Deep mutational scan, measured.
Amino acid sequence: NLRWTSEAKTKLKNIPFFARSQAKARIEQLARQAEQDIVTPELVEQARLEFG
């Protein structure tokens, strides 16, 4: 299971509600691909840039 830093959680809250669950799934996918067990603000930002 993935842990989220408080900064990453804050960044996730800045994503519009309607896109948040999809973004969260993508962020967690990116973390797993990078073999990380902690979601960082950088991963959230990477996903945000993908979504535009």
Rank of each mutant, 00 (worst) to 15 (best):
L2H: 02
R48L: 15
A23C: 09
S6V: 12
E50S: 08
S21Q: 11
D37N: 12
T10M: 14
R26Y: 14
T40C: 03
Q22R: 14
K9H: 08
L49V: 10
V44N: 00
E28W: 01
Q22V: 12
E28I: 08
I38D: 03
T5P: 02
L12K: 01
V39L: 01
Q36A: 11
K9F: 11
W4C: 01
I38G: 02
A19P: 06
F18N: 07
R32S: 05
E28N: 03
F51M: 13
L30A: 04
R3T: 12
Q33R: 10
L30G: 01
R32Q: 08
R26Q: 06
K9G: 03
A25W: 07
F51R: 06
A8M: 01
L43Q: 03
P41A: 14
W4F: 01
F17Q: 15
L12W: 08
P41V: 15
F18I: 07
S21F: 07
I27Q: 00
L30F: 08
K11Q: 12
I38C: 08
T10C: 14
T5V: 03
G52E: 15
Q36V: 14
Q36Y: 10
K13E: 13
R20M: 05
R26T: 05
E7F: 02
R48W: 15
I27W: 02
K9P: 00
P41H: 06
L12I: 05
R32D: 03
S21A: 15
L49H: 09
L30Y: 07
L49E: 09
F17I: 15
Q22N: 09
A23G: 02
G52C: 15
T40A: 02
V39W: 00
Q46L: 13
N14M: 12
E28F: 02
L2T: 03
Q22H: 10
P16H: 06
A8S: 04
A23R: 03
E7V: 05
N14W: 07
R3I: 13
Q29G: 06
L43M: 12
L43N: 03
Q29E: 12
V44H: 00
E7N: 05
A47S: 05
P41F: 05
I27D: 00
E35Q: 14
R32H: 07
K24C: 05
E35A: 13
L30P: 00
S21E: 15
R32N: 05
L43H: 06
T10I: 14
L12H: 01
V39A: 01
T10H: 12
